[in-house]
Design a protein around this nucleic acid. Structure first.
Length: 346
DNA sequence: AACGACGGCAACCGCCTGCCT
DNA sequence: AAGGCAGGCGGTTGCCGTCGT
């Protein structure tokens, strides 16, 4: 159904906000908090529609907004996330604390897009304009597909945790990154479909499991997904928890074991952390960059300095769930059926 | 100095989604 | 199940400052 265009708007002020209006809005939110935007303008003594107030607050007045020049690391992050997520600005913003989706969108449209075009990279596809889609591109595509699913799911989890915490969108986003307890600890029931979707893409797009020898199969394999191919038994990976940061799997601890990895975390709630373990060396360097690009910015601050930190290692980020939920995922996976081509899904 | 072109960015618009009744 | 509403999202607009002529 179509929503009428902000009925309150008739006769209300539009355009740039004045300092007086800002002060009124700030004063009201300081006293009463944000939310209930429709009623807020009248209560705050503003002749604006609620939507305008919300935008002003979320994109400009919030105290936790970082303004000013984007660092080169932030630029790289935006580019890399855009390659994976496309114009999903809110999802990208979820990975850039203190930056708003609007700001990132503007920055992309006014600068980064042009810069990429200038050096011969198509900003829409992130591929060289002359790229003939070689084999590496295919692998990157598969990797990107997996990463995209994961990042989308992560962004959803962030939103979910916000909702359950009663935290408005305007508050700072808890990062999944260097504090594994923040986001997941409050998610009682993340959407299972996200995991299934991501997982199905792994088994259909990246590789299939061969439980006989744990070897990587062709990405184009058309094997049916059967219960015996489920990644069981799940091995424990026994390494110092200090070497394990955030919701990620330390890549070179994976050894050559293919399949699912679980790590019994040391967090207070005894969380599990699961990820797709892959034999990273099996992928061409270009494909690895997809993983590195996404994950290193998340981990470098906490991993650097650790004796186990290896800047050249890819980190496969996974999902964190508690035991009960993880078991339900496995139950669900057992019932998943995929078409031979892997094109079914979801 | 005047003026047009351009770039950056705040703000708006329309659509979508989820929740509640 | 359907309707109404609030909030979120991505695309677009338009203002304003800067730069070049």
């Amino acid at each position: 159904m179509r929503q009428p265009p902000c009925p309150q708007k008739v006769g209300l002020k539009k355009g740039p906000w004045t300092p007086e209006e800002d002060e009124k809005l700030l004063a009201y939110i300081r006293q009463h908090g944000d939310g209930s935007w429709r009623a807020l303008p009248v209560k705050a003594g503003l002749e604006r529609c609620g939507k305008s107030c919300r935008l002003r607050w979320t994109n400009y007045l919030r105290p936790d907004i970082k303004r000013g020049k984007f660092s080169s690391q932030e630029e790289q992050t935006i580019i890399q996330l855009h390659a994976l997520l496309g114009n999903r600005w809110s999802a990208i913003a979820a990975h850039l604390p203190k930056r708003t989706d609007n700001e990132i969108k503007n920055y992309w449209n006014t600068r980064l897009k042009k810069r990429l075009a200038k050096i011969g990279i198509d900003p829409a596809t992130h591929k060289p304009k002359t790229d003939a889609l070689g084999s590496n591109s295919a692998n990157i595509s598969h990797m990107a597909q997996w990463e995209r699913a994961r990042l989308e799911a992560e962004a959803r989890l962030v939103r979910e945790s916000r909702r359950q915490l009663g935290v408005s969108s305007s508050s700072s986003v808890p990062t999944l990154v260097n504090n594994k307890n923040v986001a997941f600890a409050h998610v009682t029931k993340p959407p299972c479909l996200d995991v299934l979707k991501a997982w199905q893409r792994v088994v259909t797009g990246l590789f299939t499991f061969n439980t006989a020898d744990n070897n990587l199969q062709s990405p184009t394999s058309t094997l049916n997904f059967t219960e015996e191919m489920l990644p069981l038994p799940v091995p424990y990976v026994g390494f110092d928890n200090d070497a394990f940061v955030g919701n990620s799997v330390y890549g070179n601890c994976v050894d050559s074991t293919m399949g699912l990895i679980e790590i019994l975390g040391s967090s207070p709630e005894n969380a599990w952390w699961a990820g797709n373990a892959m034999e990273l060396e099996s992928y061409p360097a270009d494909a690895l960059m997809v993983c590195n690009a996404v994950d290193q910015h998340q981990q470098s601050s906490s991993m650097e300095g650790s004796e186990n930190f290896d800047a050249g290692t890819s980190y496969a980020t996974g999902f964190g769930y508690n035991n009960d939920y993880w078991n339900s995922i496995l139950d669900n996976l057992a019932n998943v059926s995929l078409s031979p081509s892997g094109s079914s899904v979801i």
